[in-house]
Design a protein around this nucleic acid. Structure first.
Length: 296
DNA sequence: GCGTCCAGGTCTACC
DNA sequence: GGTAGACCTGGACGC
């Protein structure tokens, strides 16, 4: 029997703007239904005998999580609610960001539509692996690598949908597996090394969420992981709630050239100067600015 | 069908 | 610290 769990939403929250805030909604175990505006995810927890597929939607001003099958208990349900809060950034306070966007006429749509919450995975580890999958390849390949990870290493729920693999599961296979089965190319050795270090406790990506380190130092820590450079680190920083890096990649640059530079190339320093007025929120400002038309 | 280019970059060696 | 070259994959494109 399906079971429904509910979460209250904060002020200034848009479900649609959150689940379709960036490409993460297309990377398994996330699946988005943009016709009915539903987001699917496969939840897992030590208190569950098996993973459960959940459909997240908006109902009567609340977030509804419909759990399909699976035997849950109170602790597991609490974990699912925690994960959903985390995924949807329900605890993020964007009021300061909106103070900035109110000052710019062309960005007033951001606070008017409650945009700015960037969808993330339940764990930083999952976001870290997915971010490495976005580097130096097409979006189609990113989706393929992520799907391979889920399909070949994830744990199956009752309905056959699979979880994102844990670090322990990822550490149980070799670099050759990542090369041959996941089609991760040169990233294969990085995944094997990362999974082993996280599984053994040498690295704890989850600690980045509440780190006291200044952003510059936290970014250095992230960049010590092979496969994580400037773009990847700044993307991860956004997902742990720090927006003072632009996370410039080729897509973001090309969008900036089109929108603000007459389709002409310019140096990254010019892009940085353009968003400097947004202070510690500049990374979120550029992302919202470049994705304005996504809901047009 | 084949070759080339390039995409939501990063690493290493070298200067 | 800055830069050049190598690194995987697979879709798009030109021939």
């Amino acid at each position: 029997m399906p079971k429904n769990l509910f979460l209250d939403t904060p002020e200034n929250f848009s479900f649609r703007r959150t689940i379709y805030s960036h490409g993460w909604c297309e990377l398994l175990p996330f699946e988005i239904d943009r016709t009915n505006w539903r987001l699917n995810y496969v939840f897992t927890d030590v208190n569950l005998t098996e993973p459960v597929a959940g459909e997240i939607s908006e109902a009567d001003g609340k977030i509804k999580i419909e759990i399909a099958g699976g035997k849950t208990n109170q602790k597991a349900e609490e974990k699912i609610l925690r994960d959903a809060r985390h995924i949807l950034r329900l605890d993020d306070d964007l009021r300061e960001f909106y103070k900035f966007t109110r000052t710019e006429k062309r960005l007033t749509w951001i606070h008017q539509t409650n945009a700015g919450r960037l969808l993330r995975s339940p764990t930083v580890f999952e976001d870290l692996v997915k971010t490495i999958c976005t580097t130096n390849c097409s979006w189609a390949l990113t989706k393929k690598m992520t799907a391979n990870l889920v399909e070949k290493l994830g744990e199956a729920a009752q309905d056959g949908k699979r979880t994102f693999p844990t670090a322990e599961r990822m550490a149980s296979v070799s670099a050759e597996f990542y090369r041959d089965e996941i089609r991760a190319g040169y990233r294969s050795a990085y995944f094997a090394e990362l999974a082993e270090k996280v599984a053994s406790g040498q690295i704890n990506p989850e600690s980045w969420l509440a780190s006291d380190l200044p952003t510059k130092e936290l970014k250095k820590e992230m960049k010590r992981i092979k496969g994580v450079g400037d773009y990847a680190a700044e993307n991860l920083l956004k997902l742990v709630g720090r927006y003072d890096g632009l996370a410039l990649d080729s897509w973001l640059r090309s969008q900036f050239y089109k929108k603000h530079n007459g389709e002409q190339f310019c140096a990254d320093t010019q892009i940085e100067e353009h968003y400097a007025k947004f202070g510690d929120w500049r990374g979120l400002a550029i992302w919202c600015d470049m994705t304005e038309k996504w809901f047009a």
